[in-house]
Design a binder for these strands. Structure first.
Length: 650
DNA sequence: AAAGCCGTAA
DNA sequence: GACAGTACGGCTTT
């Protein structure tokens, strides 16, 4: 195999004689290709996920990338360079390029030489010897508040992120280690998993990665939607057995977590407490061993009610064994990361299905929390019967003539601001979201799947098209302004229905609702090119309906995911971007056109000319209405932290 | 009802 | 062409 090194001379890697039995190709730049047909596939996949980032995991081969971050993660899990190189040599079809060997050595040699931990309420950096401390001190001197000894010092608690980043830049990564078995300041909870909690192999495996050599390290666990993240989190908390602060992103999921803790562990109801905006300080047990709250509430910087203020103070004052962070991809957000930073904890564990953001900030999790310790393979969980099998379709809907005309007007004389002036973008969004051919396809799919007795979720970020479908087809809607009571009511009906049933959701449905499993998801409009949102929506059909075949073997249910896209609009670009993540997880999108066919469409409401004309009229008007209600005003500028979006390590 | 906040686009 | 500060829809908390 030939390769070029830094644009200079070409070098050659010799193919080993028995290369066909070996599963890996490894490039000098750290890219790995794994052939899934190999007899050593399983072992090789385990090894790759331990030392490298999964880029894509398709049916016939996987791609991984060895990065500094992945090597730090691997090394902090106890894999040393020698072992990594040995296994890599064994599995690779060719000799290893010297560059890759050097890279592995470089990014592992200093791991473990510096540790970060919480002691008596202070953050301590400690070296195994004097030298590493000497090396890093010049870089972090400004935030050192006390030198304890030649090989350790205290730093400002709010500067942890800064210190970790600096140390990482000079190749001396800090590892946050918690010797929980010998910690006397945090009391042992003495709780266990409930007997009915059956851990799945991958759940145990992911938590095992937290506990290395009898100590706990901080890190992030990535499991697909519906794979049982809560049980995994509860298991981590139980295994650590120390006071735990759990962050969730909405009040609904706070209740969920409280419920899950009670269900999966032996913690008594009086030892766990959920805290949301409507919790009163007087009726809260702030000494509970496990507290669950939202990022928003804890990170809120506006005016607080007296009650909240009191509660926040107590949480800040306590010393936590564990911070469990649900939907951890949210944590890089400005106020959320600050919220985490001002909480004192020995160990942090983050959970998410979608370790994805459309900005660069996902990398910051390494400094806010720690390395990614495990990322499950979606297709493997499908094959294991843990997740439903999902067929994904991209349904292409041509714009109606009238719609296209208006759509093009938004581009007309672009530099002059377009026909609709400053509202161009919104009109565009409304137009491609409420394209009558799209709504027709949606109507058709709803009808078809209701006949099949499916439970259907229709997602739309555009409230206009959501409303139109809701009112014209008589379907229930849950959106931001829907009251809590009404939400519960709708969800209950959705859950209990045994016939076909459809519910329409705005982006509240992405994360903030506790929805029962659906079998069909139809997406008619989305938030730009957000891969996270696409994955989360697919996730709504991943929880399988287990069915037993005649041999008593349990198999996952069949589910369908449709993404409706207006042809020849900017939505096409978004759609392909959105699909990337799922494609990398091994899903294939089948493209469909002509849904419904001409004959099938005649009976549909959205095929009627008068309805279509009205639709267009309302679509163009909907924006004006809003403006009459709320005359545009200049809003206050918000504080900007430029550091958030800076690229690093390049 | 108002203010704060998040994610995304351009 | 990259980047920095901004606009905007929609959600949660007050």
């Amino acid at each position: 195999m030939e390769y070029e090194c830094a644009g200079k001379e070409k070098k050659c890697l010799t193919l080993k004689a028995d290369n066909e039995r070996r599963p890996l190709w490894v490039s000098a730049m750290g890219s790995i290709i794994l052939e899934t047909s190999s007899e050593f596939y399983k072992e090789a996949a385990d090894f790759c996920i331990a030392i490298a980032e999964p880029e894509s995991r398709l049916r016939h081969f996987h791609e991984y990338k060895i990065t500094p971050a992945s090597l730090y993660g691997a090394a902090s899990a106890g894999l040393d360079a020698e072992k990594m190189i040995k296994y890599l040599k064994m599995l690779c079809k060719t000799d290893l390029a010297p560059e890759i060997i050097h890279m592995i050595q470089k990014h592992t040699e200093n791991v473990g030489k510096l540790a970060l931990y919480l002691k008596d309420g202070s953050i301590v950096v400690e070296g195994i010897s004097v030298q590493p401390i000497k090396t890093i001190l010049p870089y972090v001197r400004d935030v050192v508040i006390e030198k304890i000894s030649e090989k350790s010092f205290k730093i400002e608690p709010l500067k942890i992120e800064f210190v970790r980043q600096k140390c990482r830049e000079i190749n001396f990564p800090l590892v946050e280690i918690y010797d929980y078995k010998n910690d006397k300041t945090c009391p042992d909870l003495g709780i266990k998993l409930s007997p009915k909690a059956q851990l799945r192999p991958y759940q145990k495996k992911s938590v095992d990665k937290i506990f290395i050599n009898g100590k706990a390290r901080s890190g992030v666990i990535v499991l697909p939607c519906g794979a049982g993240k809560s049980l995994t989190g509860v298991y981590a908390a139980v295994r650590l057995g120390k006071p735990c602060l759990c962050f969730a992103n909405t009040s609904v999921s706070v209740d969920q977590w409280v419920f899950q803790f009670k269900m999966w562990s032996t913690i008594g109801a009086n030892r766990i407490q959920g805290i949301t905006s409507n919790t009163k300080a007087c009726e809260v047990n702030l000494k509970a061993d496990i507290l669950v709250t939202t990022y928003s509430m804890y990170g809120y910087t506006g005016h607080r009610s007296k009650d909240s203020e009191e509660i926040i103070k107590v949480i800040e004052g306590r010393e936590w064994g564990l911070i469990l962070m649900d939907e951890v991809h949210m944590v890089p957000a400005r106020n959320f990361r600050d919220a985490v930073a001002r909480t004192k904890s020995h160990c942090k564990v983050g959970l998410t299905a979608t370790l994805l953001r459309e900005d660069e900030a996902i990398q910051d999790l390494e400094f806010i929390i720690g390395p990614k310790v495990y990322e499950a393979n979606w297709q493997e969980l499908v094959e294991g019967g843990y997740l439903a099998n999902v067929e994904c379709y991209e349904v292409l809907c041509p714009m109606s003539k009238e719609y296209m005309r208006e759509y093009l007007k938004t581009y007309h004389s672009y530099h002059g601001g377009g026909f609709y002036g400053e509202d161009n973008k919104n009109i565009q969004h409304t137009l491609y979201s409420s394209n009558p051919n799209k709504l027709m396809a949606c109507e058709y799919l709803i009808k078809y799947h209701e006949q099949q007795r499916d439970k259907i979720i229709v997602f739309s970020d555009n409230l206009f098209s959501l409303d139109q479908i809701g009112t014209r087809l008589q379907k229930l809607i849950i959106r931001g302004e829907t009251s809590h009571q009404e939400r519960t009511e709708v969800i209950k009906r959705f859950k209990e229905s045994d016939k076909g049933f459809t519910v329409l959701l705005s982006k509240v449905g992405d994360t903030s609702l506790d929805l029962p499993e659906a079998t069909v998801v139809i997406q008619i409009s989305s938030q730009g090119g957000s891969r996270r949102q696409e994955a989360q929506r697919l996730g709504r059909v991943l929880r399988p309906k287990p069915t037993k075949d005649k041999f008593g073997v349990i198999t996952g249910g069949q589910a369908v995911f449709y993404s409706l896209v207006s042809q020849d609009t900017i939505e096409m670009c978004f759609a392909s971007k959105r699909q990337q993540f799922l494609v990398n997880q091994g899903y294939t999108f089948t493209s469909m056109t002509n849904i419904p066919t001409k004959e099938e469409s005649s009976s549909l409401l959205f095929s009627r000319e008068d309805v279509q004309a009205q639709l267009l009229h309302l679509a163009l008007q909907s924006k004006c209405d809003q403006e009459q209600k709320q005359p545009p005003e200049k809003k206050k500028k918000r504080e900007h932290k430029s550091s958030l979006f800076k690229k690093r390590f390049k």
